[in-house]
Design a protein around this nucleic acid. Sequence first.
RNA 1: GGACGCGUAGCUCAGCUGGAUAGAGCAACUGCCUUCUAAGCAGUAGGUCAGAGGUUCGAAUCCUCUCGCGUUCACCA
Length: 578
Amino acid sequence: MNIYKIYFNYIIELLDKFKLESKHNFDNSEILKKITLEPPKNNINGDMSTNLAMLLSKSLKLNPKEIANKLKPYILKLPNIALVDIAGPGFINITLKQSTWSDFIKNMLLNPQNWDKQNIGKGQNINLEYVSANPTGPLHAGHARGAVFGDALASLLDEVGYKVIREYYINDAGSQIEKLVESSLLRYDECNGQDIKEIPNGLYPGEYLKDVGKQLFKKYGKNLKQKSKKDVFDLVRKVSIEVIMKMIKKDLSKLGVKMDVFTSEKNIISGNLLTDILTLLENKNLTYYGTLDPPKGIDPNTWVKRQQFLFKSSNFGDDLDRALKKSDGSWTYFATDMAYHLDKINRTNGDLINVLGADHTGYISRINAAVNALSNGSITIDTKVCALVNLMENGNPIKMSKRAGNFVTLSDIIDAVGKDVIRFIMLTRRNDQSLDFDFKKVTEKSKDNPVFYVQYAHARCNSIFKSAEILEENLSVENIDLLSGNDETELIKFISQWPRTLELAAKNHEPHRICYYLIELSSMFHTLWNKGKDNLNVKFIVENDVKLTNARLLLVKAVALTIRKGLSILKIKPIFEM
RNA sequence: GGACGCGUAGCUCAGCUGGAUAGAGCAACUGCCUUCUAAGCAGUAGGUCAGAGGUUCGAAUCCUCUCGCGUUCACCA
């Protein structure tokens, strides 16, 4: 039950009626697109505010305030209107009757599961690709952000009625995999009793490959290398990737992330998709053999000019055409990625979202071009970029280097602070802003730590029920109209904005908004609670007034429910007792 | 050099796709509480939204240019 949506729809109906009755002739379509009904920033300006009069001003050639005055009688006829005010440059500010708010809480508590349900996705499919870390080593801090962001977004979209496919693309082909195989073979040699000394530069030195070596030795004994080179490569590749993917999946599940689909790059390459995209593009005349100009700023002497097989991605907004084949005739990474995206398009029958790291920003426009070309513009792809995470310890950056071995893995972080803390903190910043993750601060039990602050608010709700000696679920929804204090009403109004927050977060693909909402809700709740210290009259539990206490406990319950709902979208467990 | 992103209070950041007097949290200053509902509370101050133009009823938000920072740029993956 999104109050703002309900009144928004009233306003739209009202516009038609006004047009008919006022005999003004104007074009609705532009206005309908721009019309807003929002909670004003400052609550002096009522409960909701619309810009309708200002929008009409141009086509009616009247000043906005005049129009607002003409609209006012229409608005006064809407349900539960207490006051309509015209303010500023022509805003129409609406104040609802007090009873609206207690009714709101009542309705919410009678439908705790569904009160905030909205069907924005209408059951459409949406494919969300995230993490997709190379299977060459364990997940680290940087991956955590993409994983949490993607997973929270998935759960958010799921909540508002999309059918979400959570997907991981395994880059199990290409030169990095060759290096992985080489590294694993060294570990095998090690098990075989050889002194391998130090792992050479450019290969993967991590301990985790020892396990691969062991498995290979266990399975094939001393004779592995007697097989053909190709067989050895395939076997080692298979075992390496199995071991590492198992590790990655384990870490993901520790973080609470569960993928629906894992797609292998190797399978994409060995299937027919590459020839499919080739015919598709050729039919549209989007490929050619040609040479690219050297990028500006590059020394022309070092530039190797060569004939390449290219995709006209610049037709679709990319700044360059992109190579599909290398000079030796093999496909480029981009070509296989294009094939992969065709695969996603075919399987999904809906829009796509990619979650990438900041270092892949330059890649976005060509993928957009690809998806556009392959789907004839019928599929949109939104790419979300996650900026860096700076790991800190009490204000000081932790220096990471793979060589020195003080490389912080995701698993380490989970063990240190717990998955819920990671999930929350990773969303306390917009995805495209870099984020400091301070081991000390995120585990601090103080109001400066947002995770603690929100969890504390929830635990506090529970503790109030305890002091009142009543179980939350046994509260009866009555006397709710006794909730009439200013602060109480403000709190209710803020809760009424929850569905709107959900909607905006989902539409903009911005799960961080959930976090910010929860922090603010908690803050309002704590503030109200604290007022009870100075003023016994505003305590939640009122001595000798069972009815008022009951009403206030219902509000506490509403707060608890909302926090729980928000946390559940972030897949974080609420804490009942601290 | 090109492309993309960023620039908001001393610091860290929000800002609802163009709305009203730009908001939080730290830090600072000023009080309050030395407790029981729980890990303090309340208040004050702090701004040319990098700068300059433009679009319009109206711009932190859209467009152009300038400055500063970051990422990225070939057949890598």
